[in-house]
Nucleic acid binder design. Structure first.
Lengths: 191, 191
DNA sequence: TATTACCCTTAATCTACATTAAGCCTATTT
DNA sequence: AAATAGGCTTAATGTAGATTAAGGGTAATA
């Protein structure tokens, strides 16, 4: 619980009432590798804070291939906002890549915090804005950079994750096959 | 100015003090076709509300090709959040596709509203969340759908814009060439 | 120790889409 | 009325990256 309180110090720090309101509503859970916290077709119920470990969020296309949208590791948030807000079946999966410790806030509790403590509106506005920026840069890259360049950016942007994740997951994030990633890695080191 | 006040009725409607605080800070401008309100390298200064007309926001890759990230028409907001927030040079252009009427809020005024009227934190949180959802769905499509499928979705999602925009702009949004869009359109109608 | 399950790599072949180039049509400018 | 500039289309050729297939490495079960 301390980690999430410290997390909010990056934005507008919480006072004691706000801390109490938040932490009393958070539910801590342990998640095993390969366990899902959201599956396609489900309605997403939680906004999830990752204390320890790493998740991937991905969609599956008509031919069954997985496409990683994001990775989420320590001190970061993950949810399918579309499904959470609009209460419609999710198109996505959120799956643990490592054993994880998480803190979850239900939609009802999140709404309660928004209504009674405006600081949460502020802090989550900034959190979402930062995520929007990430996504916008990613989309721009997807359109205007080659797979080689996207791989370079990935390494630059996620130096931690680059070593933690198997190449298959990175390939799925970059929008290429593991075979082609292998080719890229090879062309970087030799020649 | 009425249109923007009505716009906020979709979220938490503004009271008289909030209306006054907002409208007294908005600056109305007329923008001609092909005029920029943001160019690559500039630091984005405004959050812009479109009263009338249509803008495109795009990036240019190493070989000079344009890639449309979004279109923004009536009753919608546009800015480069990355540049506005972090005060760093934008990688993007925002250009009028049609003659436009806009209302602009400077960063300073926006911050003032956030600090003094928490409802703006709330309303802009929801606005950004909706934009995040759009972007996430677009990224998922980009990865997992063919150009044909993406064209179908575009038409479904923007029935207005599909008729208003030249095909070159739609192609740039879909991430394909106008030539290939022409092929797709043809294969839809004949066989 | 064997077994299962991933994961990484190489290489041959294939395909969705890009590139180039040309021709035609309609608006806008001169 | 002529000229210029966009925009749409067709068609030939080119290429980034997919697909398929196979072999080898390593970690977690049994």
């Amino acid at each position: 619980m301390e980690s999430i309180v410290r997390h909010f110090d990056k934005y507008l720090p919480l006072d004691d009432r706000e801390k109490e309101a938040l932490t009393s509503r958070l539910v801590q859970r342990q998640i095993k590798r390969k366990q899902y916290i959201l599956q396609e077709g489900d309605i997403c119920k939680y906004f999830t804070y990752v204390v320890e470990g790493c998740f991937k969020m991905y969609g599956v296309d008509n031919s069954g291939a997985e496409h990683n949208l994001t990775f989420t590791a320590e001190d970061d948030w993950i949810t399918d906002i579309d499904s959470l807000h609009k209460e419609r079946p999710s198109k996505l999966f959120i799956e643990a890549i490592e054993p994880c410790t998480i803190l979850q806030l239900s939609k009802g509790d999140l709404w309660y915090l928004y209504t009674n403590y405006p600081k949460f509106d502020r802090n989550f506005r900034v959190i979402i804005e930062d995520k929007y920026i990430e996504l916008q840069n990613r989309l721009l890259q997807t359109f205007s950079a080659t797979a080689y360049e996207r791989y370079e950016s990935f390494i630059e942007q996620y130096p931690n994750l680059a070593n933690r994740l198997p190449n298959t997951q990175i390939a799925s994030y970059l929008g290429i096959t593991p075979e082609f990633l292998s080719k890229i890695r090879n062309s970087r080191t030799h020649g």
